[in-house]
Amino acid sequence: MAIAFTFPGQGSQTVGMGKDLADAFPEARAVFDEVDDALGEKLSATMWDGPEDKLTLTANAQPALMAVSMAAIRAMEARSFDMKAKVAYVAGHSLGEYSALCAAGMFSIADTARLLRIRGNAMQAAVPVGEGAMAAIIGLEQDVVQAVCDEASAKGACQIANDNGGGQLVISGAKAAVEEAARIASEKGAKRALMLPVSAPFHSALMAPAADAMREALATVEKNAPVVPVIANVTVSPLTDPDEIARRLVEQVTGQVRWRETVEWFAANGVSTLYEVGTGKVLSGLARRIDRDLASQTINTPQDVEAALAALA
Rank of each mutant, 00 (worst) to 15 (best):
T112H: 01
V127Y: 09
T262N: 06
I171D: 02
L43Y: 02
G189Q: 03
V253R: 03
A88F: 02
E306P: 00
A61R: 02
A190F: 00
M1N: 06
T56E: 02
G9P: 09
A154D: 13
Q10L: 10
G18C: 06
V221L: 09
I245A: 05
A161E: 10
F25W: 12
E27F: 00
R247A: 13
V257Q: 11
A91F: 01
V144L: 03
A125F: 04
Q297V: 15
P238R: 11
K155M: 08
R192S: 12
P226M: 08
P8D: 00
M106H: 12
P128G: 05
L283M: 14
V87N: 13
A161D: 10
A133D: 12
A210K: 00
D37Q: 15
G166Y: 03
A217K: 04
D33S: 15
M195Q: 08
A213G: 00
I137F: 03
S69K: 11
K155S: 14
K175W: 06
L101C: 13
M134N: 06
R248C: 12
M17T: 05
R79E: 07
L194D: 07
G40E: 10
A75K: 02
K155E: 14
N60V: 10
M123V: 08
A176H: 03
A268R: 13
H203M: 11
T112L: 02
K188Y: 02
T254S: 14
L57Y: 01
R247M: 10
F25I: 02
D37Y: 01
T58S: 15
T262S: 14
R79M: 02
M214Y: 03
A110H: 12
R247P: 00
K191E: 01
T220F: 02
A313Q: 13
S284C: 15
A152G: 08
P229Q: 05
P226V: 10
V277D: 04
K223A: 10
A61D: 09
L218V: 11
L21T: 08
P63H: 11
A200G: 03
G278I: 03
P128R: 14
I109T: 14
A185G: 11
G105N: 09
A311K: 12
L218W: 09
G9F: 04
Q168K: 11
N164L: 15
M214V: 03
R260W: 06
T273W: 04
G120K: 13
V234G: 04
W48A: 10
L239N: 14
R192Y: 03
I245P: 09
Q303P: 00
Q256N: 12
P197L: 13
K188R: 15
T56W: 01
H203S: 09
R248D: 07
E222C: 00
A182V: 09
A113F: 09
T14D: 06
I290E: 09
G285C: 12
K86F: 02
M106W: 10
V236Q: 12
F7A: 05
A28F: 01
A313C: 11
V68K: 06
A24I: 09
G166V: 04
E264H: 00
Q10C: 10
E276C: 03
V35N: 04
A154N: 09
G96N: 12
Q159C: 05
A135G: 08
A2R: 15
M17S: 06
D291G: 00
